[in-house]
Structures are given as structure tokens and as C-alpha cells.
């Protein structure tokens, strides 16, 4: 596990905020550094658990999925799909131009 002595530095906070696409004000970075740092410090109590040989658990409940039939049951609802769109043009959603 990551060493608890390494503080969460501002560059990491900014990097994860960029990954999460959330803009942070400069003053937020310092505050989040403290808050996230304290949460991370606290969850590092898991260091003391021995998990050797344990398979990770991702789901509770049924062991496997049921397969759906290959039938078209959905779609043909352009208006409903676009009704909540904050911006649209005809049958399209629109976003600021993406330059590739």
C-alpha cells in the first residue's frame, strides 16, 4: 500500500481533478489536499489486514449473468432521447467543436 508518510501533493490533486473533469479553484486544491489526505490516512488502516490468497470480490448476489435474447425492443424515440438536451441541433446533441 502507498506509504502513509507521502502526503497527497497538490500536483496529484490537480491531476485527479483533471481526470475527473472537475475544475478546481486554487484555494480548493489546498483544502482537498487536506481532506483527501486525511481520508487516505484513515483508510490506510487496511494495511494491517492480511489478504494473501484472497480473491477480490466485485459483486454480491448471483454468480453469473442471464443472457438477453437478440431482439430489437428499444429505440425509435428521438424526441424522448433529446428532450432533456441542454443544447441540440435537429436530431443531434451538440457540443463545442472538437478539433481532432
Amino acid at each position: 500500500m502507498a506509504s502513509s508518510s507521502s502526503p497527497l501533493d497538490p500536483a496529484v490533486v490537480r491531476r485527479i481533478a483533471r481526470l475527473a473533469r472537475i475544475r478546481l479553484a486554487d484555494e480548493d486544491v489546498a483544502q482537498l489536499q487536506t481532506e483527501l489526505g486525511s481520508i487516505i490516512g484513515w483508510i490506510e488502516q487496511l494495511d494491517e489486514v492480511d489478504v494473501s490468497g484472497v480473491d477480490p470480490l466485485a459483486n454480491i448476489g448471483a454468480a453469473s449473468m442471464t443472457l438477453r435474447d437478440d431482439v430489437v425492443t428499444d429505440g425509435d424515440q428521438v424526441d424522448a432521447v433529446l428532450a432533456n438536451a441542454p443544447a441540440r441541433s435537429g436530431p443531434f446533441f451538440t457540443v463545442p467543436k472538437v478539433v481532432e
Binding site: 500500500m1 502507498a2 491531476r15 485527479i16 487496511l46 489486514v49 489478504v51 480473491d55 477480490p56
Partner: peptide, 18 residues
């Protein structure tokens, strides 16, 4: 995120199994 997944998420999933 890269570099932390095993230390936190994967570990948590194993503790969850326990």
C-alpha cells in the same frame, strides 16, 4: 488511478471478500 489501483481498490475488494 494508475499506480494506486492495487494498493487501494484491489485491496479493498479483497478485504470485502473477507
Amino acid at each position: 488511478s494508475a499506480g494506486y489501483y492495487d494498493a487501494y481498490y484491489l485491496k479493498a475488494q479483497k478485504v470485502r471478500a473477507l
